[in-house]
Design a protein around this nucleic acid. Structure first.
Lengths: 80, 80
DNA sequence: TGAAATTTACCGCTTAAGTGGTAATTATTA
DNA sequence: TAATAATTACCACTTAAGCGGTAAATTTCA
């Protein structure tokens, strides 16, 4: 099981640590409460930009990694 | 600009390094050619599970990071 | 305990993701 | 240069993401 497939559990964990209800997180992230519910229940068909709004509020970052990323950075500048 | 927002460029770079056309990548990943086209052109509204199919073919991994991840791992087992 | 907040779980609706078809334009290469 | 492959770009169609409303079940806490 990869990291990203646990994104629902990770979101729930971070949300609770932040003391936010689902409704509050949804409001802060600018998404609907159903989206938070579905995500925390393991739905992976969420849209990427929707997911990013939620991760931003929870201070969760996504990183890309592959054997070619360092070569990519030579051409396009380092990824933060 | 965060890493994930360059996902389109990263996909294009990896696809070309793999010697794949968009149609080939789409077929291998089990998605439509339009999805590859849109992604490489910066569209971030792709669904997460759709993106994951493509990243799998290109051997690109996504990692989650936050100040609380280590604590999360204590409860849920290490993220690979 | 009992009220308040939260979570779970439906529903119907709107919007757009994802699709394959087609075709014109642009590399690629024999 | 001519044939081939790939890219870009449109289209209409189907499916489902995302939404708020509602209400029941569960948890929280004064």
């Amino acid at each position: 099981m990869s990291t990203i497939e646990k994104i629902g559990e990770i979101i729930r964990f971070h949300r609770r640590k932040s003391g936010l209800s689902r409704q509050q997180l949804a409001t802060f992230a600018g998404v609907g409460k159903t989206t938070i519910f579905d995500l925390e229940n393991g739905k992976l068909s969420v849209r990427l930009n929707t997911l990013l709004k939620i991760l931003t509020i929870l201070n969760i970052r996504i990183q890309i990694d592959s054997p070619l990323v360092s070569e990519f950075n030579l051409h396009h500048g380092d990824l933060k």
